[in-house]
């Protein structure tokens, strides 16, 4: 029983990690420019397909995927960053001052364009990718059998969170970013370079998308043009439930959703189990009714709309 519990906890944490990385990517951009970026999920799919040569319907021909791990990881992360930064330069920079709803729909347009670009290049069928098969081997911790991949996911996410925290807390640029997310107008007046702050926020969210992509691939073994959609929905909800603009809140509530999902999977009676997601989302509504500003929003200065 205890073993089961520990196993479920690790499941929940590794599921929550993927959500957390994506929620962080959405939160980074939202906090500096009030944009809910629906293309974040498509960045994830894009990074997965970057491993392959475009070869039409369902054929897997690795390209970057052939590189050894030490070269592959930085290349994919760089691609993710480039893609996200390109979307800022080509699209969102031209929408400064537009309504949040307009920017959101523009990000949906961008996401749809990316998805269809992948469809044109790779076809609609999911493509099998055999990335780092060694990771699926389980390891024994005491009498607990854990897939190595889940440990890697936990470690990488923890590393990413620590690195990001250090960047935001300890560097000059990180301070500028935090100031921008508190009060963008004021930060600009005090000489924070707005466009550069936003560009870096996009770069970070692209890197996070690439990381999420590389961590999801060995688990599922397939690249699908819709692979980011499910993650995006949960991450989006986590960002709001955590309190928009609060990065810590986004990460914590992403883990919370992971935990609640796995917990309900065990606790619900068999007949109700297929409806698990309905219970999760009903809980989301309940939380919002009780705390409309989000679970982890510390101050009451949140924007009134």
């Amino acid at each position: 029983m205890m073993l089961n519990l520990a196993q479920n906890l690790i499941d929940a944490l590794s599921l929550g990690s993927i959500y957390a990385l994506t929620a962080l990517g959405i939160g980074m951009i939202f906090s500096v420019m009030r944009l809910v970026n629906f293309a974040q999920g498509n960045y994830i799919a894009f990074c997965a397909f970057a491993l392959l040569v475009p070869a039409g319907e369902g054929i897997s021909r690795p390209f970057i995927g052939l590189l050894p791990g030490w070269a592959l990881v930085p290349v994919v992360i760089a691609l993710g960053m480039l893609l996200a930064m390109a979307s800022e330069i080509l699209l969102f920079r031209h929408l400064r001052g537009a309504q949040p709803a307009t920017m959101m729909i523009a990000s949906f347009g961008l996401g749809s364009a990316l998805q269809n670009l992948l469809l044109m290049l790779f076809g609609s069928r999911p493509i099998a990718i055999n990335l780092w098969p060694a990771l699926t081997q389980p390891v024994m911790i005491g009498s607990l059998m854990v897939p190595r991949l889940q440990l890697v996911i936990l470690a990488v996410t923890a590393l990413a969170l620590v690195a990001l925290t250090l960047f935001l807390r300890r560097t000059r640029f990180g301070t500028a970013m935090r100031a921008s997310s508190e009060n963008f107008l004021m930060a600009r007046m005090l000489g924070v370079p707005a466009d550069r702050v936003i560009l870096v926020a996009f770069g970070i969210s692209g890197a996070l998308a690439a990381t999420a992509s590389l961590l999801t691939l060995p688990q599922t073994g397939i690249a699908d043009i819709r692979m980011g959609d499910g993650i995006l929905l949960v991450a989006f909800v986590a960002t709001v439930v955590g309190g928009l603009g609060s990065l810590t809140g986004a990460v914590l509530s992403a883990y919370l959703i992971g935990l609640v999902s796995v917990f309900l999977q065990i606790a619900l009676p068999l007949a109700a189990r297929p409806y698990r997601d309905a219970f999760v989302y009903a809980a989301v509504i309940a939380v919002l009714m009780l705390k409309p500003d989000g679970l982890f929003s510390a101050d009451r200065r949140s924007q009134r709309i």
């Binding site: 709001v240 919002l288 009714m289």
Partner: peptide, 27 residues
């Protein structure tokens, strides 16, 4: 329930509603 909220919280609550309806009907 949902209309007691406003702004982004209301938007996300409607998104949750969509997910609930979809899950219920799909299963």
């Amino acid at each position: 329930f949902i209309m007691r909220l406003s702004g982004v919280a209301a938007s996300i609550a409607t998104l949750a509603l969509l997910a609930i309806v979809n899950t219920v009907y799909a299963n």
